[in-house]
């Protein structure tokens, strides 16, 4: 089948933005992630080297990529903060990438500047995976979110998905909403008015005939939800500390939520959480956020194996 021979067009491809994925791409990738989870091949990436370029600190994403690559038999090189690199000496990102591509087979990069990942992909002849570029994109987070929903609910089609918290600045919410627009989801945006979903995204959803509702209180919509995706109110996004104080405790979910929700509601969170989910929910069958973080491994393995042409 041509479909299998060309590995669905993934070989050599850069993974920069969720907008670059068609519905077919997403479903194919998720099927490979499932294969990675069920029958991992510990020698698949033997003799392959990944460069992990983390210009901005990140624990979860960096360790997850590092672990994913090594579990498939590959080796990793790189750095975890820009202070140790020649960027400090004034080297451009373009030049850094031109140098690094000589040393490795794939580049995994997090950068504090928006658009840095796309630029790196333009500079590099080897695949570049975006592990977060400023406030812009973090596509592997979105892909693992989709994988989690698919695994937990058995489908991505036609679900009622609630997004709660900081919807104005939360890039995970923006990307997941765009990705779910391929699957005819009905969306519920729950936030204080000042942190509501940006108009550009709402316009984009309208253009795709996606139904959505906005609310301030989760109780208004909880009975309808299949999935509740909770995000942290991000302190670092507020210029004014007083403003942050006003909103930081806007939502505190606890077991009382389960009394006004569907029995099979799943609660997701990209983590870290601060106070928005009471740990008393952790032991319930509804809480899937720790499993969600674990799903980063098979999803990243699938991406890496695909772009390196190791899945036939």
């Amino acid at each position: 089948m041509i479909f299998l021979m060309d590995n669905n067009g993934f070989k050599g491809r850069d993974i920069i933005s969720i907008r670059d994925f068609s519905k077919k791409d997403l479903l194919y990738l998720l099927s490979i992630a499932k294969r990675m989870e069920q029958s991992p091949d510990t020698s698949l990436l033997n003799n392959k080297i990944a460069s992990l370029l983390f210009f901005e600190p990140s624990t979860r994403t960096r360790l997850s990529f590092d672990s994913a690559f090594k579990k498939l038999g590959g080796k990793t090189i790189g750095f975890a903060q820009a202070e140790v690199t020649s960027v400090k000496k004034g080297e451009t990102l373009w030049d850094t990438i031109k140098m690094v591509e000589q040393y490795s087979d794939v580049i995994i990069m997090r950068h504090y500047i928006e658009g840095a990942a796309r630029l790196a992909a333009e500079a590099a002849s080897i695949p570049v995976l975006n592990a977060g570029d400023g406030a812009n994109q973090h596509p592997t987070q979105t892909l693992l979110d989709l994988y989690t929903i698919l695994k937990e609910k058995g489908t991505l089609e036609g679900l009622n998905i609630g997004f709660l918290g900081d919807l104005k600045y939360g890039r995970t919410v923006h990307s997941l909403a765009i990705a779910l627009s391929h699957f005819n989801a009905k969306m519920f945006f729950i936030s204080p008015k000042a942190l509501s979903m940006p108009k550009d995204y709402l316009d984009e959803l309208k253009g795709k005939n996606i139904k959505f509702t906005e609310a301030e209180d989760v109780a208004e919509v909880s009975k309808q939800l299949d999935v509740l995706y909770v995000t942290r109110i991000q302190k670092e996004r507020f210029a004014d500390a007083l403003e942050y104080e006003k909103y930081k405790n806007a939502y505190k979910l606890d077991k009382s939520l389960l009394k006004i929700s569907k029995k099979d509601l799943i609660i997701m969170h990209p983590l870290p959480r601060v106070g928005e989910i009471n740990p008393e929910l952790d032991d319930t069958k509804n809480a899937v956020y720790f499993r969600q973080a674990g799903n980063g491994i098979p999803v990243r393995q699938a991406l890496l194996a695909l772009v390196l042409g190791k899945i036939k």
Binding site: S17, T92, G115, L119
Partner: peptide, 28 residues
């Protein structure tokens, strides 16, 4: 946006002609 930090060509796609709306290929 990286295009305001390094010397690189900007690249915009037109997403709506009237009223005009464009999207930056780099920072979106």
């Amino acid at each position: 946006c990286i295009t305001n930090q390094e010397k690189v060509k900007t690249h915009f796609s037109i997403i709506n002609k009237a009223p005009l709306k464009v999207i930056c290929r780099h920072c979106e």
